Simulated assay, not measured.
Amino acid sequence: MPIGVFARRSGLTASALRFYADSGLLDPAEVDPASGYRYYGADQVARATVLRQLREIAMPLAAAEAVLDAGAEEAARLLDEHVAKVVGDAVAAQRKAAVIKSALGNVPGLPITALMGPVLADAIEQVLTATAHEPGMPVLAGLRIEASHEAVALTATDRYRLSTRTLVPSEPPTQTWAGTVDGDELRAVVAEIRRSALVRLEAVPHGIWLRVDEREDRHCRLLPEEFPDHRLMLASLGEVTSRVTVSKELLLRALQEQAGDHIALHIADHAINVRSADDAHPDILIPATTTGQALRIRFELTTLYPAVSTAIGPDVMLDLRGHDQPVTIRSADRGDLTTLAMPVKSDHSA
């Protein structure tokens, strides 16, 4: 087929095809010796299409040629290496740009507070389990930090879960401050924070600095979007009608064994009955301390499991308000990490 037809079939321009031919990546099947016209075969469309896709993800020519000529396993490895490098370079550029913007503003940092590094790292990891990357709602991937004169609260929500943990600072905050920090950037610095005895938080325009002794300070961006009004939601929670205290290990094991998309809990006297919503697995009865009304309630496994797994301590406490109301999940003896989990529509015939 002529180069114009082949260009339309492959999604490449004629000029790009000439360039790739000159580079040795995609030679034409035939070249008319008199006119110099280039012709391509139908069996070359697949290679040309992959070449176009590789260039669309900014893969250099040499690396693209290696992928095209490699077997499936080696090509996958090369692609993974390239993507990792692109993502790493983008993250590094993003951080550097944020630092430059702060410097250009010529505004001194605002000291917020100081926290023990290992404690802060654990809290960040626990609360960030309630984040999500939703198109059009970037704030759901952020972690809200609120410093008062007495404490520092970390909060995140994906609309189906809300996790919040309150930390006692090593040094009382000098003033109140609140901001939503990019969750992905916080994840990237957790290991560094954990190895630091003390971490000082300092606010700057568009970001925060995490200052550590004898290590490189870390900068994380602030998200400009408004964080959901979680305090209003917490204040509007209904009265607790049932309370359950249960072994965290036993409850997690039961959830793992059910392994369905939806999990049903039946709260009864001195026990929780855990069952898959589709009845695909036998019910699992777990001993528990219960007070209040009997209740059947259903959750998505991806909502309930992380809410339980991040709870602190050997036993978890569930405060229930009805089959269609948020459930509060926290440690039975430590209340500084609290998670709200939204149930799904209940089937009362289950």
Rank of each mutant, 00 (worst) to 15 (best):
L162Q: 04
S196L: 00
L222N: 08
D217L: 03
L115G: 01
R144P: 00
P173N: 05
E214S: 14
V139C: 05
L120N: 00
P135M: 02
R144E: 04
T164C: 09
T164K: 12
G142L: 01
P118C: 06
G183E: 01
V168A: 08
L167K: 07
L186I: 11
E171Q: 13
L167R: 04
P224D: 12
A156T: 09
P135Y: 10
H219F: 15
T166V: 14
Q175N: 09
C220I: 10
P205T: 10
T174R: 14
D122A: 06
V181H: 02
A197T: 14
A188L: 07
P172C: 02
E185A: 06
C220V: 14
V212R: 09
D217K: 02
T131A: 04
R165H: 10
H133E: 13
A156Q: 05
D184F: 10
T129I: 12
A147Q: 03
A191S: 15
S170R: 15
T155R: 04
D182Q: 06
L143C: 05
I193Q: 01
V181F: 02
T129K: 04
A153Q: 13
L154M: 06
H149E: 13
L222M: 11
E225L: 08
A153D: 13
P135A: 07
G207R: 04
T180R: 07
P169W: 08
P118A: 06
H219Y: 13
A114Q: 12
G207P: 05
V212W: 00
A153R: 15
G142C: 02
D122Q: 12
G179R: 12
R159M: 13
P172A: 05
W209Y: 08
A153H: 14
T164S: 09
A123G: 11
E134G: 12
R221C: 10
T164W: 07
M137I: 08
E226Q: 15
